[in-house]
Simulated assay, not measured.
Amino acid sequence: MHGLGGDCGDAQRGARGTRRRARRLTLAWSAFVPDLCEELTAYRPDRPAAVAFGVFDGVHLGHRHVLATLVGAAKQRGLAPVAVTLANHPFSVLRPDVELRMLTSLEERLGLLADSGVAAVVPVTFTKQVSLLTPREFMTALRDCLGMAYFAAGPDVTLGHNREGTLPVLEALGEELGYTMECVEQFTQDGGPVRSTAVRQALDGGDVASAARMLGRPFALEGPVVEGEHRGGGLLGYPTANVGVGPQQAVPADGIYAGWLLHGTDRLPAAVSIGHKPTFHEGGPSVVEAFVLDFDGNLYGEQVKLEFVERLRGQEKFDGTDALIAAMRDDVTRTRRILALPQEAS
């Protein structure tokens, strides 16, 4: 079950006290944050804008709920709906030692946001200078450089330096700066909020089915087909396409999965292995490889996309190749069943 959770009312009631503490500040944006203002102005619509802002990693159902609210409100008010997203994660600047695990690449994220019905998607660069902007300064930039007249956000929104731009603060700033602030109730599913963190947690457990429910589509990895060890086709009888995955890409837990390989207009059934190949290696590199069922073409160098449907089992170390081949044969049989494909004639 899914629905709306979280209380916008509590956060909004705190706006009155914040409003009394607010002070006015006028900034020359072209001089103060020239790069940010230039990026915003490049996408400024020909009429006032309704804006939603965030990283939007994964563009999951919670994000899409905010964006749907934004598009509906913009239509009612005669505004242009605009999604402003960060081209790079704040941790890449503030905590570069943290290993990022993004659910979507920037290119995929921009495409998903564009498909949400907004008039424009604005990627802005997160810099140290941007990180120091107060909530008032950042919202003023959205108003002056993008033409913002309406802002939509969830009840747990935080932005600006030290994450001081909570909902009550943004409510108060709306009255001060002249934009309408709308709190969008938290979207929930199966009794919990849908967040990017929850999707990552599902992937960490290999639960790609739950991740797909939160995303509203199958979780996918995209990359080029690269050279492997050439062991699959010769020694094992199951040639695989090794997919190169970026270092910041979130990946499901090690294991074997039923899924689909997308190449151009083709959508091909596949059994996908993620892991370190423990039967052959001790502590080797993690590899993503797909055995494409009923396919004998050459995919080397091609860009492909892997969609994950269901986890079959964890990664295992077998006593020898015979045991591994028997397990792979069973993986293919189960993949056919899960994807509703006819079983291969024996």
Rank of each mutant, 00 (worst) to 15 (best):
G246V: 15
P285Q: 03
A253T: 12
G283C: 12
G259H: 06
H230M: 11
Q201V: 09
V226M: 10
I274M: 05
G233Q: 12
P252Q: 07
G223F: 04
Y179K: 05
T265N: 14
K305L: 13
F219A: 01
A241W: 06
L177C: 02
R231D: 07
R217M: 05
A202E: 02
V251H: 04
E282W: 11
L235H: 10
A290F: 06
W260G: 00
Q303G: 08
A250Y: 03
G283M: 12
E282M: 08
V194M: 07
Q249N: 14
I256V: 15
G205N: 13
E222C: 12
Q249S: 15
P269Q: 06
V199T: 01
L236G: 09
A198W: 11
G259C: 10
F187C: 10
A241R: 02
T279W: 03
E227L: 13
V184W: 05
G237H: 11
Y238V: 12
T240K: 08
M214R: 11
L221Y: 00
R267M: 06
D204K: 12
G206W: 00
Y257D: 07
Q189K: 13
R267T: 09
D207V: 10
A211R: 01
V304G: 00
N298H: 11
Q186N: 08
V243L: 14
Q249C: 15
Y300D: 02
F219P: 00
M181Q: 10
E176M: 14
P224E: 13
F219D: 02
A271L: 10
G234N: 13
P218E: 06
G191I: 08
W260T: 04
G244W: 03
E182K: 12
A172K: 01
E185F: 07
A212S: 13
S196A: 12
G232P: 03
N242C: 11
D296S: 15
H263M: 10
L306W: 04
P285V: 07
L236V: 12
G206L: 01
F280C: 00
N242P: 06
G237P: 09
K277A: 14
F291S: 04
G297E: 08
P224C: 09
V199H: 01
V194T: 07
N242Q: 09
E222F: 02
V194A: 05
Q303E: 14
Y300Q: 04
G255K: 08
G205H: 13
